[in-house]
Design a protein around this nucleic acid. Structure first.
Lengths: 197, 197
DNA sequence: CAGAAAGTTGAATGCATGTTCAAGTTCCTT
DNA sequence: AAGGAACTTGAACATGCATTCAACTTTCTG
């Protein structure tokens, strides 16, 4: 194993450690010492691989957001039938339990004023998720299975907005029934697309 | 003016100062010194009125959340006609510019792991907002102007979820057109209630 | 007006944090 | 095996933070 890949592994291990700490105890509990302990290394080692701790936080948030999107994209591309795909996307978008990653997504919003580099990441994830839905809706509309009653761009945005809120609510202790949430979103999609789901 | 009301005024001034700092520079920039400077007092004074700085933060977040809800409740009670009321609620729920208060609402989510007392406040605001919509929908359904195509409880929840996301997006730099957002929510309501809006 | 109560201050304290670094260890290359 | 590069460590340092407090000023009260 050459040196640069071992370096990359080490960095990944630190990112993973930060994600565990932030996901379990809150992003504000993630600092050089807690992450070092979680990764079973010294504080000095953390800063050997990342010039500043902020860089590690940025890498972790970026990783979380990218994985988050990537998971949804994969689900979308796996299912060909528009109706099935839409159902799969909504199911995946409103998971049964709030993952620690989701927690990082929302808690990291508080970091944005002090770390402007993170802003484009957040924005672009929402935009890409909207595009994912939009493409699906347009395919379905194209083959006639969806008959959109309002602009598809607006429907796609609404679907992402619903998902985002229903994913955030558990963080504030609002334990809505996840099946009901999915049903509510599906019902909206069915109405807006004039199509049974 | 008696002593206890002057004390209350002083506390309110500190709460207001914290809200200004948090709203303009981010909630993580709010600390004893920045708030003291904003209120033109010394750091010692801040802690004369609040036993700990956390208590001040809690008071400010509670104030923001309560005002937030109160504003919406007042709008709802001012308009009798269900269709008009619903329109007014959605208009108020998706303001043209993100207020500094809204910023505090979302950024304070990151504080929850370390300040569990705040969790019930957040939860209860969402719940009460849902109740506000639900009541309006039920009145409209009762008089026949709304003909809900799905359970009103679910429609009310969806409306609040849409609002919450569209209010959060500006914080991550996603500058969607506010008119379009309102239109998208209104279009959903119109579909779900089988009623022109 | 005098004494007490309330309010204010800014320096001092203690703790947590990010970062540096000299010293040591492990790994790789020749 | 030798020497150098990569890595690791933990103590040390600087900074920022909430909090305390003794001294002082203002306001109230009888």
């Amino acid at each position: 194993m050459n040196q640069s890949t071992r370096q990359a592994q080490r960095r990944d291990a630190l990112v993973a450690a930060l994600r565990r700490v932030a996901g379990e105890r809150g992003i504000l509990q993630a600092n050089v010492r807690t992450v070092a302990a979680e990764a079973d290394v010294s504080a000095g080692s953390v800063l050997y691989y990342f010039p500043t701790f902020d860089d590690l936080v940025a890498a972790a948030v970026e990783g979380v957001l990218e994985e988050f999107y990537e998971r949804r994209r994969r689900i979308a591309e796996e299912v060909a039938d528009p109706r099935e795909r839409l159902r799969a996307m909504i199911d995946a978008g409103i998971p049964d339990e709030i993952s620690s990653d989701l927690r990082i997504v929302y808690e990291s919003i508080a970091l944005l004023p002090e770390r402007p580099q993170l802003r484009p990441l957040h924005r672009s994830i929402v935009e890409r998720q909207v595009m994912l839905y939009r493409t699906t809706l347009e395919i379905g509309a194209g083959v006639g299975v969806f008959r959109p009653r309002t602009p598809v761009a607006a429907i796609a945005r609404n679907l992402v907005a619903l998902e985002d809120s229903y994913d955030m609510y558990p963080l504030i202790g609002l334990g809505l029934d996840r099946d009901e949430c999915r049903r509510a979103v599906l019902d909206y999609a069915a109405l807006a697309l004039d199509c049974e789901l």
